[in-house]
Deep mutational scan, measured.
Amino acid sequence: TEVDLHLGDITIKLKDVSEEIVKRAKELFKNGWSAEFVKKWIEEAVK
């Protein structure tokens, strides 16, 4: 499945990412993480 994760003005296309990771990524962004950091976190999380 593909998900578009909207973080501010940046959209990250996610492939084969669990709902849990998407939820967590949104929380991290809301908590002040930059979109770049969230993207890196996701990449690490799906390895």
Results as ranks from 00 to 15, higher is better:
residue 24 R to T: 12
residue 21 I to K: 01
residue 23 K to I: 10
residue 38 V to G: 00
residue 37 F to D: 15
residue 21 I to L: 09
residue 37 F to I: 13
residue 14 L to H: 02
residue 7 L to A: 02
residue 38 V to I: 14
residue 12 I to H: 03
residue 34 S to A: 10
residue 21 I to V: 09
residue 46 V to M: 15
residue 18 S to T: 08
residue 9 D to E: 13
residue 29 F to C: 03
residue 45 A to N: 08
residue 18 S to L: 11
residue 45 A to Y: 12
residue 27 E to I: 07
residue 27 E to P: 00
residue 19 E to Y: 08
residue 11 T to F: 06
residue 26 K to I: 15
residue 44 E to F: 11
residue 11 T to A: 07
residue 4 D to P: 03
residue 8 G to V: 04
residue 4 D to R: 08
residue 19 E to S: 09
residue 38 V to T: 03
residue 32 G to M: 01
residue 43 E to Q: 07
residue 37 F to S: 15
residue 17 V to Q: 02
residue 12 I to D: 03
residue 43 E to W: 06
residue 46 V to Y: 06
residue 44 E to H: 14
residue 34 S to W: 05
residue 27 E to R: 04
residue 45 A to M: 15
residue 32 G to W: 01
residue 31 N to Q: 14
residue 34 S to D: 15
residue 31 N to S: 12
residue 21 I to Q: 03
residue 18 S to N: 13
residue 43 E to D: 10
residue 9 D to L: 08
residue 36 E to L: 04
residue 21 I to G: 00
residue 26 K to E: 13
residue 30 K to W: 04
residue 34 S to P: 13
residue 17 V to I: 09
residue 42 I to P: 00
residue 33 W to C: 09
residue 5 L to A: 03
residue 28 L to C: 04
residue 19 E to D: 15
residue 15 K to Y: 13
residue 1 T to A: 10
residue 13 K to I: 12
residue 11 T to D: 04
residue 41 W to L: 02
residue 44 E to Q: 11
residue 13 K to N: 13
residue 37 F to G: 12
residue 41 W to I: 02
residue 44 E to A: 10
residue 44 E to L: 11
residue 29 F to Y: 15
residue 31 N to R: 06
residue 29 F to M: 06
residue 35 A to P: 12
residue 28 L to D: 00
residue 25 A to V: 04
residue 3 V to W: 05
residue 4 D to A: 13
residue 4 D to Q: 14
residue 30 K to C: 07
residue 45 A to W: 11
residue 43 E to I: 08
residue 5 L to T: 02
residue 47 K to S: 12
residue 33 W to K: 12
residue 35 A to R: 03
residue 44 E to S: 09
residue 15 K to T: 14
residue 11 T to L: 09
residue 13 K to P: 09
residue 8 G to W: 03
residue 35 A to Q: 06
residue 27 E to T: 05
residue 46 V to N: 06
residue 41 W to C: 02
residue 46 V to G: 06
residue 18 S to G: 10
residue 2 E to H: 11
residue 13 K to T: 13
residue 37 F to Y: 15
residue 5 L to Y: 02
residue 23 K to C: 10
residue 37 F to P: 01
residue 9 D to H: 15
residue 10 I to S: 05
residue 41 W to S: 00
residue 16 D to Q: 06
residue 8 G to P: 03
residue 47 K to Y: 04
residue 2 E to D: 13
residue 29 F to H: 06
residue 16 D to V: 04
residue 20 E to I: 08
residue 4 D to V: 14
residue 7 L to F: 10
residue 35 A to F: 07
residue 46 V to L: 15
residue 17 V to C: 05
residue 20 E to P: 04
residue 47 K to M: 12
residue 2 E to N: 13
residue 9 D to N: 14
residue 33 W to Q: 10
residue 37 F to K: 15
residue 26 K to Q: 12
residue 47 K to H: 11
residue 33 W to H: 15
residue 33 W to S: 11
residue 3 V to C: 13
residue 22 V to I: 13
residue 25 A to G: 03
residue 8 G to M: 04
residue 26 K to H: 11
residue 7 L to G: 02
residue 40 K to R: 11
residue 30 K to D: 15
residue 10 I to A: 07
residue 41 W to Y: 08
residue 1 T to V: 15
residue 2 E to S: 13
residue 45 A to R: 07
residue 43 E to Y: 07
residue 40 K to L: 14
residue 3 V to H: 11
residue 19 E to T: 10
residue 8 G to E: 04
residue 8 G to A: 05
residue 44 E to V: 09
residue 10 I to H: 08
residue 29 F to E: 01
residue 25 A to D: 00
residue 35 A to S: 08
residue 39 K to C: 11
residue 1 T to N: 15
residue 6 H to M: 12
residue 43 E to R: 02
residue 11 T to K: 07
residue 44 E to D: 14
residue 11 T to E: 06
residue 24 R to S: 07
residue 38 V to N: 00
residue 25 A to L: 05
residue 17 V to H: 03
residue 23 K to P: 00
residue 21 I to F: 05
residue 9 D to W: 02
residue 44 E to M: 11
residue 3 V to Y: 09
residue 18 S to A: 13
residue 30 K to L: 14
residue 47 K to C: 09
residue 11 T to R: 09
residue 6 H to V: 14
residue 38 V to C: 04
residue 4 D to S: 13
residue 32 G to A: 02
residue 17 V to P: 04
residue 1 T to I: 13
residue 13 K to F: 06
residue 41 W to A: 01
residue 9 D to Y: 04
residue 41 W to E: 00
residue 20 E to S: 11
residue 23 K to V: 12
residue 27 E to S: 05
residue 26 K to F: 08
residue 41 W to V: 01
residue 5 L to C: 05
residue 23 K to N: 12
residue 32 G to Y: 01
residue 39 K to R: 15
residue 40 K to T: 12
residue 12 I to R: 03
residue 47 K to A: 14
residue 3 V to A: 12
residue 33 W to E: 11
residue 41 W to Q: 00
residue 16 D to L: 04
residue 13 K to V: 13
residue 23 K to F: 08
residue 33 W to L: 14
residue 37 F to M: 15
residue 11 T to S: 10
residue 18 S to K: 09
residue 21 I to S: 01
residue 5 L to D: 02
residue 5 L to N: 03
residue 39 K to Q: 15
residue 46 V to D: 03
residue 17 V to W: 06
residue 28 L to A: 03
residue 14 L to D: 02
residue 18 S to H: 12
residue 6 H to E: 13
residue 39 K to L: 15
residue 28 L to W: 04
residue 26 K to M: 15
residue 22 V to F: 08
